[in-house]
Amino acid sequence: MSIVIVNTGCSNLYSIKNSVQRLGYRASITDQLCDIKQAEKIFLPGIGTASSVLFFLNKKNLLSFIKNTNQPILGICLGMQILGSYSYEGNQFNLLNKIPCSIKKLPNINCSVPHIGWNSVRYNNYHFLFKNIDNDIQFYFLHSYYMPDNDYAISFTTHGINFCSAVAVNNFFGVQFHPEKSGRPGEQLIKNFLEI
């Protein structure tokens, strides 16, 4: 299977690659459109600001392809957030609009911002992305912005407020947490995505 991790210029690329390799698969890290077009599965990671990731993708002529691809794609952390429609981060700007939901800053309500560390992920209805993963199990988070509840949410987490921690719409999937840093449950989620 051809697996690609899109080089978005962020720091967790090799952690994702190592997780994929521990599962017995091979993955490449690339920002070359010709390689990404041939992939059977695509990881879209992101750390930092949405504007910087979108700028990088646009500079590499990847933005239009990613928005319109029919290949299964998993957005991780910021990679999930850019699936939304609009961001209130810094200068307000449009995102990929795969999910009609705006990205907002976590309010500092009896909690720390950014949200760093382990937290529970709850799902109400079974989704294959969580196959063989216990409900209410903990994953590792690192973020300051969040996606509110929406029609495509498949899991939720509480940090001061309830927010959407995983989404699925057609061939687009996203997780706010970092499965590559979340031990066995994280690797199981990556395995589930690869076995779609």
Rank of each mutant, 00 (worst) to 15 (best):
Q81Y: 05
T8M: 07
I66K: 00
G48N: 13
G90P: 04
D136Y: 05
D136A: 08
Y14V: 03
F43D: 01
Q71E: 14
Y14L: 08
F177G: 03
K37V: 03
I103V: 13
P72S: 05
H127C: 09
N125A: 11
K59Y: 12
E89F: 14
L83V: 10
A39T: 10
I5S: 02
L62R: 04
P100V: 14
Q81K: 02
F128W: 04
Y14F: 08
D134E: 14
Q21R: 09
Y14M: 08
H143D: 10
S11Q: 15
Y14K: 13
I42F: 14
I103D: 14
C10F: 12
F56Y: 14
L189I: 00
Y88C: 06
V20Y: 01
S52M: 11
P100C: 13
D151P: 09
F172C: 09
F141I: 07
I161T: 02
S182D: 04
A153H: 04
K181N: 11
N192L: 07
I133R: 04
A166V: 02
Y86V: 12
Y88R: 05
Y86R: 12
S155L: 00
C77A: 12
I76P: 06
P148F: 07
F177L: 01
S28A: 11
P100N: 15
I190W: 01
D134P: 11
Y140G: 08
G117W: 00
V113W: 05
V121S: 02
N91F: 14
E180P: 08
G79R: 02
E89C: 13
T30L: 08
T69G: 11
S15G: 10
I47S: 05
K104D: 09
V20D: 04
T8H: 07
I16C: 11
I133H: 05
G75S: 14
Q71F: 14
D149H: 10
S182R: 06
N91A: 15
I190S: 05
N97A: 02
K131Q: 12
Y146L: 12
R22I: 14
W118D: 00
F172N: 07
L54A: 00
F93D: 08
A168T: 08
K105E: 11
K104S: 09
A50R: 03
L194N: 07
A153F: 11
P100Q: 15
G46F: 03
